[in-house]
Structure formats: C-alpha cells, structure tokens
Design a protein around this nucleic acid. Structure first.
Lengths: 316, 316
DNA sequence: GCGCATCGTGATCATATGATCGACGGAAAC
DNA sequence: GTTTCCGTCGATCATATGATCACGATGCGC
C-alpha cells in the first residue's frame, strides 16, 4: 500500500536510464554488476531499478505460445471456484475436443498418480478416452482402478486387459436399470457392495460432465431418452456427473431416474479426496459451471473457449 | 549462431510444459525450485527449460515502448525525417550490433503484426536475424511471409520450415544475376511474377540498409565485387536497400547493376504501407541518413550512436 | 556383439541476485 | 537550532541460479 502511491512520475532521465538498464539486462544478457560498471551505478541500485521497472509494468514478459493465454484462465478458474487445480487446453478448430481433453486428462493423471494409489472412474466418452491413453501407465505402475458406477465394464475391459487385471474392480451391472427395485437389488449384491465400498477409498475420481442435450452420451447409449431429458431440463437440470443430474448451483435434483442408477451418490463422490473432471465444448458450459459452483469437483480440465465462457458468466 | 537453427520443432506436450514453467516463473514469481516441486521436475531441469524457452523465442521480454528506448533520439528522428516511428536501442560496445538490432526489430514486429497480415522481407544479415527470432510467432499466428527480392530462400527456409510453409512465398531466384537479359527472363517467369505481385500487397516490408563499404554483406556473399562498389561510390552511392543503391538524398541511382536484380523496385517498395528498416553501426550512418531523408522508409530501428550521428549531421 | 559418440540427467560448486540492516542526509515539525 | 521522520544508499549475507562435471542410457557404425 505504501508504495502504491509512491511517485509514479519520475525524472525523464530516470525513465531512460531504467529502460536502458532493462534492455541491457534482458536483451543483452549482461549481469547487474556489468550494467552497473558500464553506467556507473552500484550493482544494488541496478537491482532496485529492475525491481521498480517490473513493479511499474515497464518490463513485460510475454509467453509466445498458444498455451500462454490459457494459464490466465486457469488461475481465474481456480480462484473463482476454489478449485485445487485447473487445466485449460488451447483453442483449436481442428480435432475432436474429447480426444484433446482426454489427452490432457491422461497427462495430468500420469503426473499425479503414485504407486499403490487407486483411481475411481466414472462414465462417459472423455473418461473412456483418458483411460485408453493411461492404459500403459496403469499397468506399469501398480495402480488400481475401480468404477464409480455400473456400465463401465463395456469399455474398461479392453483398456485394462492382460496383466494387471487383478487391480481392476468393476461394478458388474449397467449404469441404469429400468426399475427402482431392480436397482435396489443390484446395489445390495455382495460383490457390488464390495466394489462400491472400495470406490469410496479411492485417492482420485475421474469423471465426465454431461450436458442436458440431445447429443449426450447417455442418450446415445440408450440409458436415457430424449423425453426424459426434456423432463429433467424442465426440473432445472443443467448437467450430470456419474448419472446424477444437478441444477445450476450444482445441487443434485430429486429425480426418479436417480433411484434407478447403480453407482455412488454425490455424498460418496465428494468424500473422495480429489474429484477430477474432464469436459468441454459449447454444450457443456452451463453443466461445467454449475458443477464448479457447487463444489462438485476439485480439478477441472477443459478447453479455452469453454473456460472463457464459464468465467464470463460469473463475471457479472 | 550455430545452435540458432537447432530443432525448432518439439513435442506439443513439451511445449505446454515449457510454457507452464515460464508462466510460473515470470508471472507468478515462483522460484525454479518451487516450480520443480509443483510439476515434479528437478530444479536444474526447470532452469534448462527456461533457458531453452528464451533461446527459442518462446519467452519474450518487452520493454514498454512509451517509456523505453532512447526517447529523445527517437522523437528527434521521427520529427526530422517524418518517420512513422523510430526505435533506438542503447549503446553498447560489446556484442554483435546486428543481433541486438534483430532483437529489437523482432520485438517491434511481434507487437505490430496481426493475424492474416503479410510481411514482405528483403535481404541481409539483420533481416535474417529478425526472422529467426520471429519464426515462432509467425507459425503460430497465421502470418504470411513473402520475399521482396531473390536470394532470400537461402536463409528463410530454415526459419519457416515445417508447419506453416504454405504461407511462405519466395522468389525462386538469386538476388543478382550476371546478365541483364537473364534477369529480365527470370522476372518474366510466371512464378516470379506471382510472388512479386503478392509482395506488393504486403502490409509491411522489413528491409536492411547496406553501406557502400567493403564489409557489406553483398560483397561477402559474392553478389557484388569490391571494384563494383568502388564504382558505385564514385557515382555517388551511399547505401542500398534490397540491392538498389541510392545517393545521399535517397534517390536511386541509374546503375547497370540494378538491371540485373531480381526483385521489387523503389516504387513498389514505397507502395507497401509501412517499410521498416533495421540497421546500425558506424559504417551505415550515411546510408541510413540518406534513406531517411529520401523517405525510403517509414520505421527506423537503429542504435544510439548511429542515431546520434545521423541527427548531428542534419543539425547543421 | 562391442566400442563409440551423443544426449539427457542430476550433483556440485561458483556466481548472481535480492532481502535485511544500519548509516547517512535532507525535510518538516517543534 | 534541534529533533524526528523519511527515504535512499551501500554492506552483508542467505538464497537462487546457471556452469561444469560425471554418469547412465540410447543409438550408431564397426
């Protein structure tokens, strides 16, 4: 605060000197001592001038990369929603967005997973892609996999096939069944109970975020119908995580559909130390924003335009 | 110099990591050790990544121009010669002056070039250095490159190698040929005509300014002989731009040499909205001064002693 | 297969940098 | 005039940084 009103105006000569010092330092690669000798200044003074130059914004560092702009967004996301971490991948017209998110997510997890740890996985296209990319790492590095919901086995088997299958625990059931009492019965099965309680002990959860849109994977794979989605939307649903639909504040709705799910609920999900979500694309803006606002996730991996849109909505 | 053209291409993931490191270092003010911890890298590796980032031009330090530079001299140059802009870099005995000018020029252009724009480039050591520094920006930011003369391909290819080569248009010919009729024939070639007419549509032209001295790059690279230069000097030549020699008022001379050039003439050059020249050093004082007086250039990037000398000569 | 060169890595150490502290000097208050 | 406050300066020292070295992995040619 004290230096905030520190004279912003200084001698023109001072300005020139400062920029000269900055030039020598940053562009010519001279040391502060060398600059001092050359311009008859004490080394310490040169140091202070550079410091001042930086504080005043006279010296500006530009990161000349398509990633550059993303870091600012990451910082904002973390700040606004209290995320542990955010990853934003650069905008790019070409290429499937889910593939690129999966790539980023798998990279993130690779750097994060330690031996002996357990990763719980949800349901969705992005999650599947991530697991495919992770497959090799998982088998090399004694990492266990467990499913958060039913319906995962379909794609996870190919991924974790072979050697390390003893470390893979799946809920042997579909994601959604047709009747509430059937779901109850399945959830009571001993093996299902075991896997679900194991999932509660996972170190990380990897989930996708679904939009309430006709293109949703839930509809494409026959777990839900368009008319159901229309009803969900009327009730205020903006998105889903592991099959549970929530409103714009990230609060889970009370839907009959939820009673037919086989998998963990939001309470159990939140108990997992770190919930990592990978999702992006224009359709998912509201879904992601609500999840973040509601504290449903700890780590968000998304793309640049989506991040921008989310932040803008919470700006006002 | 030698390692300047070591592989400019690297893994996308590598680049992301590098950008992230740079961001933490320069924007968040973290130390290299802290970054290492955070990203699971050894401190030394972080240090090396930063080094590489700087060398590759991924990290750029910009010194705010409104304060930076050598104010008084810049203002005087603009005033006396009616330049759009002047950049003067501080004096320094050691270090290659061309490298420092190239640094300044690339910085200027980076701040100026917008997407979809086209930059036409001339011939010379400083231009080459500038392009090397710009390479990264150019490929990222949909900017087209076109040559103003022949003989450019030799050094531009390494620069624009790889991805964005569809945006690079070179005159496929040497700068100077041995006979007038050969030059005529080349200039009539369809492809050459095309590139030259494209060059006329460029938004900016980046050129060097050559002195009529034995050290000239034109002589060093075998395009002209000392005896030719001696003759040019007798005829009143004080400098050249894209191979065209002019007198002390910046008026092009009528030399046979010019008829053997493959490239644009002064009329076409002036038609480009902004002609940017980067040149400095004691040998080039008269050449630069004449170019400025004759209105051959719109933007001048030079060094302090040279600027001083030029102004002094026009003071009296 | 066996050197051989090359590269990337981390360890060690010299150097560069910036934080802290006391001293000096000028300006305002008394 | 003195005193006190404030800012600046340089000395000292802890830390951050980058240069050098040595090692192990990888790839190449013999």
């Amino acid at each position: 605060m004290n230096e905030a009103n520190d004279e912003l105006a200084f001698e023109p000569h001072e300005e020139e000197l400062l920029s000269r010092v900055a030039w020598h330092y940053y562009h010519d690669g001279l040391t502060q001592s060398e600059i001092g000798e050359r311009l008859n200044l004490s080394r310490i003074k040169v140091s202070r001038m550079l410091d001042r130059g930086r504080k005043m914004g006279l010296i500006h560092v530009h990161i000349n990369s398509s990633y550059g702009g993303c870091f600012a967004l990451e910082a904002r996301l973390q700040e606004i929603y209290g995320l542990d971490e955010a990853r934003v991948i650069p905008a790019q017209e070409t290429g499937n967005i889910n593939d690129r998110l999966a790539e980023a997510a798998s990279q993130y997890l690779m750097g994060r997973l330690k031996d002996q740890e357990m990763l719980a996985v949800g349901w969705g296209a992005t999650v599947m892609g991530t697991l495919q990319r992770l497959a090799r790492t998982l088998s090399y590095r004694d990492i266990s996999l467990v499913s958060l919901t039913g319906g995962v086995s379909a794609y996870i088997e190919g991924v974790a096939s072979g050697r390390s299958s003893q470390n893979v625990h799946l809920i042997p059931a579909p994601l959604v069944v047709s009747q509430e009492n059937i779901a109850e019965a399945i959830r009571a099965e001993r093996h299902v109970v075991e896997v679900m309680s194991m999932a509660r002990t996972a170190n990380y959860a990897l989930v996708g975020i679904g939009a309430v849109a006709d293109e949703a994977t839930l509809i494409a794979s026959g777990y839900a119908s368009r008319s159901q989605f229309e009803i969900f939307r009327r009730q205020g649903a903006v998105g889903d995580i592991i099959g549970i639909f929530y409103d714009q504040n990230g609060e889970p709705l009370d839907l009959p559909f939820h009673k037919m799910l086989v998998g963990l609920d939001f309470g159990a999900l939140s108990a997992i130390p770190q919930v990592i979500a990978a999702a992006g694309g224009p359709k998912k803006i509201d879904a992601i924003r609500a999840a973040a606002r509601g504290g449903r996730i700890d780590v968000l991996i998304t793309d640049e335009p989506t991040a921008q849109a989310i932040i803008e909505k919470d700006q006002a």
